[in-house]
Every structure is written in C-alpha cells, then in structure tokens.
C-alpha cells in the first residue's frame, strides 16, 4: 500500500500531461454559442434590396445559413466568392449586413455578385448582439425545424464547408 502512494505523484503528473496535451492545437478563440438548440431570436429588420420590413415569419422554411458580413470586414472579401459558389449550388443564405452602410452594401453586391436570398440591414448591430456574434464574418446553420444547430466564426471556405454542410439538414 505504501509503495502505491509513492507512485501517486507520477500518476498525477501523467493525468495532467494527458489533459494538457489534448488542449494543444485547439482554437483558443473558439467560443460556444448560447443560441445552439434555440430558434432565431425575434427581429424586425429592413431588407436591403426592397426596403421591406422582414421578421421571423419571413425566414425560409428549409435549412439555410444566416451569414453576417460587412463591407468593412476584410475576411468577408475573402469569403464572398465561396458564398456565391454555394448559392449557385442551391444553398439558401440569408445575409445580415452588420454595422454597415446601405450604399456600400449595394455597391458590393452589384460588383461581386449576390449570393443571398435577401439581405437584412443591421446598421446598429442590435440583431448581431441578439444572435451573440463577436464579429464578422460569422455564420449560423438553421435546420428545417427553424432551430440554430451550428455556428461558425470566421470565413467559410472549401476546407471547413464539409463540417458546416453536415449540419445543414
């Protein structure tokens, strides 16, 4: 029994090593979303193209993405062509123009193509806060039941799309 206790520091060290080793390489900025498993929060926003009021009942009845972007956001420039490609392959994307100006957003979509079913204007960023976003680009996956099932921070690209696509059902 006494001999077993002599091994205690070694065992404790081993456990600690494993716990710490598992953490290596994990994204330190990853943050769980409080919205997973819930429906999209209540909102009423103006759409970019036709100035109509849009609210929860106007959201698509099929699986879709909610993509927060802004013309001020550098990573959104990188992400945009891939979103256009996704839209062409039939993915439904609702855009939220986050803390941005209408004229700049229109220019951007005219020049680079419009992958969005419609774009909601969140000029003050209140809807962004309700969705718990930390910046742009940020994308939520909503399933056919209208429940948020996944959140992706940062740009969507060919590498991470398979994971996101897995939730889109």
């Amino acid at each position: 029994m006494r001999k077993f206790f002599l091994f205690f520091p070694f065992v404790a060290f081993s456990i600690l090593s494993v716990v710490l080793y598992v953490q290596i390489g994990k994204d330190a900025n990853y943050m769980p979303s409080a919205l997973i498993g819930q429906t999209v929060p209540e909102f009423t926003l103006v759409s970019l193209t036709d100035d109509e009021l849009v609210s929860n009942k106007d959201l698509p009845n099929q699986p879709y993405l909610i993509n927060f972007w802004g013309t001020w956001c550098a990573a959104c420039h990188v992400e945009h062509p891939y979103l256009v490609q996704l839209a062409r392959s039939g993915v439904v994307i609702v855009g939220v123009d986050y803390k941005d100006k209408k004229s700049l957003a229109e220019q951007w979509l005219n020049k680079k193509g419009d992958p969005y079913r419609y774009v909601l204007m969140d000029e003050l960023g209140h809807f962004g806060v309700d969705m718990g976003i930390t910046g742009a680009p940020e994308t939520f996956v909503v399933d056919s039941q209208g429940v948020v099932v996944y959140r992706h921070q940062g740009e969507i690209n060919a590498q991470n799309w398979p994971v996101i696509e897995g939730y889109l059902q």
Partner: peptide, 8 residues
C-alpha cells in the same frame, strides 16, 4: 449577456 453569449 448570458442569454446571448453563454456563461462563458
């Protein structure tokens, strides 16, 4: 805050 960003 917790409702939007979690207990985090």
């Amino acid at each position: 805050m917790v409702a939007r960003y979690g207990t985090f």
